[in-house]
Design a protein around this nucleic acid. Structure first.
Length: 227
DNA sequence: ACCCAGGTGGCCC
DNA sequence: GGGCCACATGGG
């Protein structure tokens, strides 16, 4: 079995299904993705709760609210001079493109939506893919710092290039939305549990996960075969 | 008093 | 085009 799939099997066996993303609606996923950048989930949760309590957890409401008003509620998520404006602008984009109707927004070819997303301020590759996968249900593999950290530590690959890592997984793991959602969630779960920045593999709670990397050498920096 | 958090965009060479 | 760095809040 492919090692990328083997790692998935072992993570799933160790932690069980994560049922990500932790949000009630697609719009909450989007707001969370935009606020989550370089911030703890705890703070993002608080910010979303603040917006919800203020009745602002809605595309139209956020698109028309002032940046100052939004800032008051999402300050806890940090980067308060950029995130509120980006959140507002993104919601304006949603209103303009589909009147805030997310089902309609995501009912387009994946590549087209991704281009739309990437055109928005503050939406880089990871945020765009997180939104596509968890809010839109499109089969794209999300790459984040944890994915790179665990993947290189386990020995699956030796690059931190977003597209390369994404192609690595997408060319080996069955292209299934449920699997992609679960795989990414499990990587985050594992990282938070034991795969910290500093410690090494020997501190890993799932030793068998690291064993996967000892069978072969990591992929070089060249394009993964079959990609 | 550090380091870290599920990144991104702007500089600089 | 690759390599830094600021951004900002809250917790360990």
């Amino acid at each position: 079995m492919d090692r990328a799939v083997e790692v998935y099997r072992r993570l799933l066996e160790a932690y069980g299904p994560q049922h990500w993303w932790p949000a009630e609606t697609s719009f909450e996923v989007i707001v969370g993705a935009l606020l989550m950048q370089q911030t703890s989930w705890r703070n993002v949760e608080q910010a979303i709760a603040n917006l919800k309590r203020a009745g602002l957890l809605d595309p139209k409401a956020l698109a028309t609210a002032s940046a100052a008003t939004i800032r008051k509620h999402v300050r806890v998520a940090g980067l308060h001079r950029t995130k509120p404006a980006r959140l507002k602008a993104f919601c304006y984009h949603l209103m303009e493109r589909s009147c805030g109707d997310l089902a309609r927004y995501f009912d387009r070819p994946t590549a087209v939506i991704r281009e739309d997303l990437r055109d928005q301020a503050g939406v880089g590759p990871e945020t765009a893919d997180s939104i596509l996968l968890y809010a839109g249900g499109h089969p794209v593999f999300v790459v984040d710092a944890y994915t790179v950290r665990i993947g290189t530590r386990v020995g699956l690959f030796s690059t931190d290039d977003y597209d390369r890592v994404q192609r690595y997984f997408e060319s080996r793991v069955p292209q299934d939305v449920g699997v992609y959602q679960e795989y990414h969630a499990l990587l985050v779960r594992h990282a938070k549990t034991t795969c910290r920045p500093k410690p090494r593999c020997d501190a890993c709670a799932i030793q068998s996960l690291c064993d996967v990397g000892h069978a072969r050498k990591p992929e070089g920096r060249g394009a993964p075969s079959g990609a």
